[in-house]
Design a protein around this nucleic acid. Structure first.
Lengths: 126, 126
DNA sequence: TCTGCCGTTGACGTTAACGTCAACCTGATC
DNA sequence: GATCAGGTTGACGTTAACGTCAACGGCAGA
């Protein structure tokens, strides 16, 4: 359980390039500390990166991932901010539910396609 | 239950632009018939479009959606093709299962974020 | 016949999400 | 002390997935 990571540690762990990590920082998604000139990542920053990558797998844009990250930050200011945060959360939830449905349907479809495929192969071998 | 659709019919139904539909055709994902100069879409073409859009919602590229579409086409040639088709199908399935897991985790996280948000709002109003 | 509306084909512009490359610093090691 | 593996900041290139715009055709209605 390391308590600090270098940029190449994270790049290796998540199989991305250092350029990508710096890019996320450029876009304000990460904010690592510095040791002289070099970047140092805490477990918290590492977690943010995980959130970004998970978002990517779900087809979220970096902007969307940014807003998700902000949900976990204790920057909970005034009531207006909280309300808009809540709205964002519910938006994401609706998005996820749509995806769930899409996946269910596609799973069934792929199952059928697989079966057809296997049948065709069996027919050829006969 | 119309048996034919114009390009703007489909654009209106799926809330995309006609430019997008033509773009998909350019990329070989759609192949509508023609009436003179105008495009005519059968229910089968409409289904392809639905598959593309579902793929998009799941973060698939157009190339990936193209291969999914091909799974439903009866171009089942030789055994090699079928084998590679099968591999593609299983790849997609693995992808979807990863997404399912991601969604589950994120749903839980968002649920907590929502609760925190509601608590904070309640605390302010008190 | 003229005005709209719907359709067409290019050609070029745009945005997100990086990749690539150059030019540089820096601490460890042989 | 030279080399080398790691780090840094620009600046520019690239790809996918469209948007935008220009220039045009066809046809229904006033």
């Amino acid at each position: 359980m390391a308590t600090e990571y270098s940029i190449s540690d994270l790049a290796a762990e998540f199989d991305i390039t250092t350029r990508t990590i710096r890019f996320y920082e450029e876009k304000g998604l990460l904010a690592p500390q510095r040791s002289g000139n070099s970047r140092i990542y805490t477990p918290a920053e590492r977690t943010k990166l995980k959130l970004i990558l998970r978002g990517k797998r779900l087809g979220f844009t970096l902007e969307e991932s940014r807003s998700i990250i902000e949900m976990y930050d204790p920057e909970h200011g005034n009531s207006d901010q909280l309300q808009s945060l809540l709205a964002k959360i519910r938006e994401k939830q609706a998005h996820l539910e749509q995806q769930l449905h899409d996946i269910e349907v596609m799973m069934v479809d792929l199952g059928e396609a697989e079966k057809n495929c296997l049948d065709a192969i069996a027919a050829e071998e006969a």
